[in-house]
Write a protein that binds this DNA or RNA. Sequence first.
DNA 1: CGATTTTTTGATTGGTATCAAACATGGTGG
DNA 2: CCACCATGTTTGATACCAATCAAAAAATCG
Lengths: 246, 246
Amino acid sequence: MIRLHKQGEIVQKLCEKCSLHILCMPVMLKERELTDLGAIIRQSRRLKKGEYLFRAGEPFTAIFAVRTGFFKTIVNSQDGRDQVTGFFMSGELLGLDGICNNNHGCDAVALEDSEVCELPFNNMEDAGSLLPSLQIHFYRLMSQEILRTQELMLMLGNMRAEERLAGFLVNLSHRLSFRGFAANDFILRMSREEIGSYLGLKLETVSRTLSKFQQEGWIKVEHKHIQLLQPWMLQEMVMHCQKAVG
Amino acid sequence: MIRLHKQGEIVQKLCEKCSLHILCMPVMLKERELTDLGAIIRQSRRLKKGEYLFRAGEPFTAIFAVRTGFFKTIVNSQDGRDQVTGFFMSGELLGLDGICNNNHGCDAVALEDSEVCELPFNNMEDAGSLLPSLQIHFYRLMSQEILRTQELMLMLGNMRAEERLAGFLVNLSHRLSFRGFAANDFILRMSREEIGSYLGLKLETVSRTLSKFQQEGWIKVEHKHIQLLQPWMLQEMVMHCQKAVG
DNA sequence: CGATTTTTTGATTGGTATCAAACATGGTGG
DNA sequence: CCACCATGTTTGATACCAATCAAAAAATCG
């Protein structure tokens, strides 16, 4: 938990749902450990829309937790084609794929003015040996990222355009509501093209599919403002998709 | 390194390239640490072809390193469709996605008679605090798994059937050669359908594409026996694919 | 050897990409 | 404040790749 912030209460609320909560809330820890942990989280960093938090290939020194704002990550293939591999909102972690080779495996770009907490990885290592529970917590976070990419693989490998987009909207809705935002009324921070890249579709297909969902009465689309009118229909589509269409 | 094995030398050779090498080779560690580490790796376990090492949902207690043989992992989607998410050969790690929720996120099935080393995760936690370098090594392994799935996502999201299969063969070739096997002459341990599931293709497409590669003279296919005659052509196809086809 | 499973190959269908053009949006500078 | 341009979005027509349906051939297993 970052201290000395003007809007202390708001920050605390954000932090409650953060993956790094345990690192920031020394209250739960013993007195001795508290002092040791003081230096783990470094002061937050602000980024303007479009700014890069890090780029693929840059030396890896820290992991980041989104405090406010929205990010995307992009992997660059050898031949210039690149793909969005994730969208990250407050409380979510960026940069875990950099640990492996000591340099970042993807670009991270702010999709709106944002703020992140920086966790230098060296401190992390030290803290891990001091606090076994922290080490395990961190294993969990990394494992969760593996689960996330597995789910995405399932979408990319098995699902049709409509199912992928439905899955995307439902997932976004869940994550927003978990963080206390409206589940069925939100602003898309990313372009149609970025959604397409993430889902392995072309931007025209994304646009067409959103229009179709609107015609069906399942959602309301006003540019980037999305309302889920019948979210259960989207959920349905992700679950047994071949029936819903065939 | 498992001791007291009949074919000591062969085992040692296999272990040299194993991800868990560092856990098994106490030679590199100080005397005191050696004793502590004695109990980390548990005796290996044998599985017959078709046997499950673990199933999705089962309580997670250990991570496994393939010692000999070949495995696939499968994620089950809610509606019954499932997808192969990886193939694992000797030295590679299975079960990392189970840490997150304390139960396994996928099935792991032996594709031939196999043997694994079992690493109880509790021991792992203890060992991590004793040996910081070990903890970091383990972070690296998990990060590597994230990188692997990212690469696969790129294939599933961006590539055409030919490119995916070329990428698959090249990847297999690299991993085999890293472990001292022939790079351009190997036996596929999995069926066409399993390859298809992994690559987001139907088995017919896999079969057709292999036939096409053979007609081009790039590979030789004899059932499960594959020879790469012009591996650079496959590599080429993965790198700048649109040119090679358009 | 026969039964079952896997693989190959062909014909057709269908979903998404591609190409193209109109339209809306948001930011910039006059 | 508005005109303007660059960018992003929608929608339509067409093309193409891979899925599907189908059937024969080959391999595996008991």
